[in-house]
Measured scan of single mutants.
Amino acid sequence: MAEQVALSRTQVCGILREELFQGDAFHQSDTHIFIIMGASGDLAKKKIYPTIWWLFRDGLLPENTFIVGYARSRLTVADIRKQSEPFFKATPEEKLKLEDFFARNSYVAGQYDDAASYQRLNSHMNALHLGSQANRLFYLALPPTVYEAVTKNIHESCMSQIGWNRIIVEKPFGRDLQSSDRLSNHISSLFREDQIYRIDHYLGKEMVQNLMVLRFANRIFGPIWNRDNIACVILTFKEPFGTEGRGGYFDEFGIIRDVMQNHLLQMLCLVAMEKPASTNSDDVRDEKVKVLKCISEVQANNVVLGQYVGNPDGEGEATKGYLDDPTVPRGSTTATFAAVVLYVENERWDGVPFILRCGKALNERKAEVRLQFHDVAGDIFHQQCKRNELVIRVQPNEAVYTKMMTKKPGMFFNPEESELDLTYGNRYKNVKLPDAYERLILDVFCGSQMHFVRSDELREAWRIFTPLLHQIELEKPKPIPYIYGSRGPTEADELMKRVGFQYEGTYKWVNP
């Protein structure tokens, strides 16, 4: 592979701008107003304001973009700056750019259920340069409990009458099928589907988006991507930290609602779906819905739930269990780990287990898709061969690698495990991989909904998990304890083995 010439960040961002501006969906010269509902909250200060700053800094926003914060707290732009700027990672050389960014910011205080507050917000936006005809993007960085009041008031008082209007809704989209349907029906009564952007930030990850290209742009994968060759698929999300004093919020939802029903299920769809007619948003989402419709409700015998306990040999936070978090209700049975087996009941995947695993306070930070292939028929190497695996590593250190057998150097035919490896950090030294939120917010500006969740996708996802969630809430089974920093409950490994996964433990990928 030829040595790549190092590029400056300015040059890299210039390439990104060229890609972005050559499309006809990006209205570079139009006025846009980006409204952050819930501007005083954690999500706004840690993710949304920093993301908008990065896009502005790199010249990736339309030229005439204004940012308006809205929340109940009586704040000023200076207050917003004070709480969000520490997350910007701005350099001293960017000081003038930073001043320009905050000059485009404003803030309006108001209630979430008060019509007069929204009329005041609308008047404020109209007073901005060309504000009355601007395109408006409303980001709901809010708890779902206020979605209905907020969307109703936005629709009645704050819509642009000339430009387009788009609304970005953060997960969780309800707690179960019934609450999700209620919320979807409410929002759909106010906005068209092409105006609604239900954001799952995992769909903005580079390697998640790469799944489609790997599958449908490489001839070698087509013939082997089926039940005849693939023994099982494992989708993993692991965090090495616990709730760390923020367990009160987590306890309301648990690990299945927080990660599995959305992030992991979306990745499953991209692995299992048929080739779409095109890369058009609805063509892709149509195929994802077909996959979900082929999955039956989760069966309790295919589920393992766990909850982390303190590690007596650990240090600091590792010595504390979930129930030691003062914000967690006493005696909570909320799971911090889950392993679930699903089956896609169609011709391509009949009988292939899709194993979804996620948890907190585990032994490493990792998100990946792992396809394990069947054993080689007619073994001539005296059971020395391990199964081939194709691994798409989402985070950290984005990579695609194939675990395969090669001859060990020497005189004899002794096979050993090795890999074919594409590590993004080595291959793409001159490429700026956008943060997931950067990519998705740019998608909203461009009107691309491919990486957002459609209402029928959402409904099918909740259909699969709601009976299990209701059973857990009714019966309150005690989750299996696992030690902070471990791989999780051993019962999860036993479940995976029972459905056909072979864990060798003899080879570990190392970032080159």
Rank of each mutant, 00 (worst) to 15 (best):
115 A>I: 14
130 L>R: 07
134 A>H: 11
65 T>Q: 03
146 V>E: 05
172 P>K: 01
194 D>R: 10
46 K>N: 04
118 Y>N: 05
203 L>D: 02
162 I>R: 11
192 R>M: 09
141 A>D: 01
151 T>E: 04
11 Q>H: 13
94 E>R: 02
139 Y>Q: 06
155 H>L: 10
91 T>A: 12
194 D>A: 08
253 F>C: 09
42 D>A: 10
208 V>S: 04
154 I>M: 13
136 R>I: 07
14 G>M: 14
65 T>H: 07
58 D>P: 00
53 W>R: 00
102 F>I: 11
192 R>T: 14
109 A>P: 10
252 E>R: 07
216 F>D: 02
200 D>P: 00
218 N>Y: 01
6 A>S: 14
197 Y>C: 01
105 N>Y: 07
153 N>W: 05
253 F>T: 04
151 T>L: 08
155 H>A: 14
197 Y>K: 02
120 R>P: 08
101 F>D: 01
81 R>Y: 06
65 T>I: 13
203 L>Y: 04
200 D>Y: 02
230 I>Q: 04
149 A>Y: 15
40 S>H: 02
74 R>L: 14
37 M>H: 09
20 L>E: 07
27 H>M: 04
54 W>D: 12
129 H>Y: 13
14 G>H: 13
102 F>D: 05
231 A>C: 07
106 S>K: 14
179 S>G: 08
222 G>T: 10
139 Y>E: 07
143 P>S: 12
27 H>S: 08
200 D>N: 00
210 N>L: 04
116 A>D: 13
240 P>S: 11
34 F>T: 12
120 R>I: 15
66 F>W: 13
230 I>W: 03
103 A>G: 09
122 N>G: 10
34 F>W: 15
100 D>S: 14
162 I>W: 13
233 V>M: 05
56 F>Q: 03
254 G>N: 11
102 F>K: 03
40 S>Q: 00
40 S>T: 09
133 Q>V: 07
124 H>C: 07
79 D>G: 13
55 L>Q: 11
69 G>C: 08
207 M>G: 05
249 Y>L: 01
85 E>Y: 08
104 R>D: 04
163 G>D: 08
127 A>K: 13
214 L>G: 05
47 K>G: 02
242 G>H: 03
225 W>H: 05
86 P>W: 15
146 V>D: 02
83 Q>L: 13
257 R>S: 07
240 P>T: 10
27 H>I: 07
